[in-house]
Amino acid sequence: MTTEVLLDCRQVTKRFGGLVAVNGVDFSVERGRIVSIIGPNGAGKTTLFNVISGFYRPDGGEIWFEGRRIDGLRPDQVAARGISRTFQNIRLFQNMTVLENILVGMHTRVRASAIQVLLRSRAFLDEERALVEEAFRLFRFIGLRANPNELARNLPYGEQRKVEFARALASKPKLILLDEPTAGMNPQEMAETTQLIRRLRDELGITVVLIEHQMRVVMGISERVTVLDYGEKIAEGPPAEVRRNPKVIEAYLGRGAALGSAD
């Protein structure tokens, strides 16, 4: 495995008024890795994702992706560079079908111009057909059981999570940011999702960063774990090591949740 750094956050800081949600965090990810970010509630994990994906501009620090600076770019520009994400509370396009959700995820890859759309040119029709075919393929890859033409809002929770996965994969990202992908899932769904995350990396070659509360998932798939607490990075390393780190245990125990309790 190469050790090329794909994503590099340097001294990233994000404040909300007086609250420092992310405080001078250094965080880098090598291409082809699966890494986790953990930390108690309110530690700044989601905020870090929002800064990386362009929803918040950092108040300090730099973010580099594939050797280019991406802090200050708009979310759609970050997406176009090859960073895709899911949301902590599912954000599907509720009144669009499952397939349409996936097709929207392909937006950055569309080449047909608006003129070609209006003229229904060959190039547009061919591209559209190819995209629909690929959407069906992704649908199967994710293991969705719903009707592909069903509205997203009519799907059960677990399926909605999977659609969000499929939608995030549709742009063929180089890096995917998953914000608590197993939240609200039963143990079987959780196992399926863990398996799926592995396949993203192994079969599609996508680098994965996930925020996760479920220790079973974190310990099972991540090659490296970064721990945030009160916006600061308090530990980093292989999962087994991080879990024995006194500072980490303190951060969790201090708020009444033992680190090992989930498994």
């Binding site: 759609d76 997406a79 954000r91 599907l92 396009f93 009144n95 937006h107």
Partner: peptide, 22 residues
């Protein structure tokens, strides 16, 4: 087409639409 889908995506969830590169 992608144009109409992008519009509807914006209608449904602006933030998610932007995250999809729109």
């Amino acid at each position: 087409s992608w144009v109409g889908r992008a519009w509807t995506a914006i209608r449904e969830d602006e933030l998610a639409a932007q995250a999809m590169g729109i």
